Simulated scan of single mutants.
Amino acid sequence: MTMMEVRSRAPGKIILAGEHAVVHGSAAVAASIGIYTSVSIRLHSQLSSSVDKDDILTLRLMDVDLEFSWPIRRIKEVLPDSASTIASSPATCSPETIKLISVLVDEHKIPEANIGIASGVIAFLWLYTSIQGNKAATVTVSSELPLGSGLGSSAAFCVSLSGALLALSDSVTVEFSREGWVAFGEKEQQLANKWAFEGEKIIHGKPSGIDNTVSTFGNLIKFKSGALTCIKSNMILKMLITNTKVGRNTKALVAGVSERKNRHLDAMTSVFTAVDLISNEFASIIQSSSDDDIEKEQRVEELMEMNQGLLQCMGVSHTSIETVIRTTLKYKLTSKLTGAGGGGCVLTFLPSLLSETVIDKVIKELEQCGFQCLIAEIGGNGLEICFDGCS
C-alpha cells in the first residue's frame, strides 16, 4: 500500500466594517486573518485492484480530541452513490443525503459537550465522498481559530478540506513545490470555494458565502447586496482580536436590528447609510497608494470608533464588548466588535509605532477578565497547499 499525502491551510476572517447594516443594503468590508485551520490528508492507495474489507476512512479532530472512523464498506452501504459525483462539478447535499450521513455520524455518539461539531462531521463526509469517492484515508484537522467565535472557523475548515481533497484529485493542477506553501490558481480557487460553500450550507443552512470566499482568496473583500469585490491592501494592518468567550444567538441579534428598524425607520435608515459611507471610506483608505501610513492609521481608528458607535445604536453591543473597549481605551487604543456582536470577538487596532510593552500590558489586563487574546495581521494569503513536510 502506497501513501499520498497533502496538507492545506485556510485563514479565518473578520468583519472590519459594516456588520448588520449589510443585511439592510449597506456595504461591508471583510478580511482574512493570519490565523489558520489546517487539514492533512493521507490517502491509502491500494497496489492491488482488490478492495480490502478493512479499508477505513478516519477523521481526527485534534482541537477537541475526537476521532471518527468508518469502514469504506459501511460508507458504501449508507451512501451507495457516493463515488458517482464529479469533483469538478460542485453539488448541493440534499436533505435526504444529510439524513443518511447523519446515521454514520450518530453511530459515533458524539459527547454532549461537542454536539455542535456534528454538522461539521456531516459536511466532512459529504465533501470527502463527493470529491474523493470511496477511498481509504486518514484526515487530520487542527485549528488556531476558536470555534463559534465569529472568526469563520467553519469556513476555514471547509475551504482547507476542499483544497486538500481537490489537490489529490484529477480536477485541479497544482504546481508541486518543495519550497513550502503554494497557492491555487484562480480557476482552482473558484472550484475550492464552490465546494467549501456547499460544506458551509450543511453547517449553517443559508450562509452568505462571504466567510468561505474570504478564506479561499485571502486579502480583503468589500460586499454589498450580494456583490463581492476583492480589494488589494496597500497598508499593513495589525489587530488584537479579543475573544470574549460569550456565546451569542446571531439570528436573534439580526432579528433585533430589524425590529429596531421597524420601530425607528428614519433614524435606523440614517444609521445604515452612515455605515455604508464608513465601509466605502475604509476600503478606499486601505487601497490608497499614499505613503503617509500614520495618517491612514488615524483615519482607520476614527472609522472603527464611529462604526462601533453605530453598532451600539443598533443594539448589538454587550457588557463584555464594552469591557474590552474601556480597557483598551485606557491605552488610547480603538476597538470595535466584529461579526454579530452580543459577545463574540472584538478588534483592537494596533498602530505600527505601538510598543510591544503596551501590547503586553493590554493583553495581560484583558486575560485577567477571562478573555482570550490573539494578534493577527490582516489581509494575508488565502487557501494554500503543501506537499512535502512544510510547517
Rank of each mutant, 00 (worst) to 15 (best):
M62N: 15
P111D: 01
L79E: 14
A113W: 02
I41D: 02
S40K: 11
T85A: 07
F68T: 08
D63P: 06
L47W: 11
V64I: 14
S94H: 02
I110N: 07
I117Q: 07
I33C: 08
I41F: 11
D81F: 12
R42P: 04
T92Q: 14
S69P: 06
D63M: 03
F68A: 03
W70D: 05
C93M: 09
D81A: 15
I86G: 06
S48A: 15
E67V: 14
N114I: 00
D52T: 09
D55P: 09
K53M: 12
L61R: 01
T97D: 11
N114H: 03
I33A: 14
L57S: 10
I75K: 06
P71V: 04
S84A: 10
S50P: 04
I56H: 05
D54H: 15
D63N: 15
I117G: 13
I56K: 12
S40W: 11
S94Y: 04
I75V: 09
I35Y: 05
L79R: 07
G34Y: 03
R74E: 03
P95L: 07
V103G: 04
I117S: 02
S48P: 10
K109S: 13
L79Q: 02
I75L: 08
I115G: 00
I35F: 03
E77N: 08
T92K: 07
S50D: 15
S89P: 01
H108C: 02
S45F: 11
L43E: 05
H108R: 04
D55W: 06
V29Q: 05
T37P: 02
I98T: 02
R42I: 14
L66M: 14
A28E: 06
A27Y: 07
G25M: 05
E107T: 02
D65R: 11
S40T: 04
V51Q: 12
S119Y: 00
S88E: 09
R60P: 00
S38R: 09
G25E: 15
P111I: 00
A83W: 15
L79W: 06
I56M: 08
C93Q: 05
R60H: 12
T58K: 12
L57W: 14
V103D: 02
I33M: 05
S48D: 03
Y36C: 11
P71D: 01
I101Q: 01
I122E: 06
I117E: 04
A31W: 03
L61D: 01
T85D: 08
M62R: 10
L61K: 00
Y36D: 13
M62D: 03
S102A: 06
L43S: 08
K76F: 01
S69A: 13
S40I: 13
A113I: 14
L57R: 12
G120P: 00
E67W: 01
A28C: 05
I41W: 03
K99S: 09
S38E: 10
A91F: 05
V23T: 13
S45E: 09
D52L: 13
D63R: 05
S102F: 00
L66K: 09
E112A: 11
S82W: 09
S40Y: 10
S32C: 11
S32I: 10
M62Q: 15
S26L: 13
V23N: 12
V121S: 07
G120H: 03
I33S: 04
V51P: 09
I41C: 02
V78W: 00
K109P: 00
L61G: 11
S49Y: 06
V23E: 15
S119F: 00
I35K: 08
S102K: 13
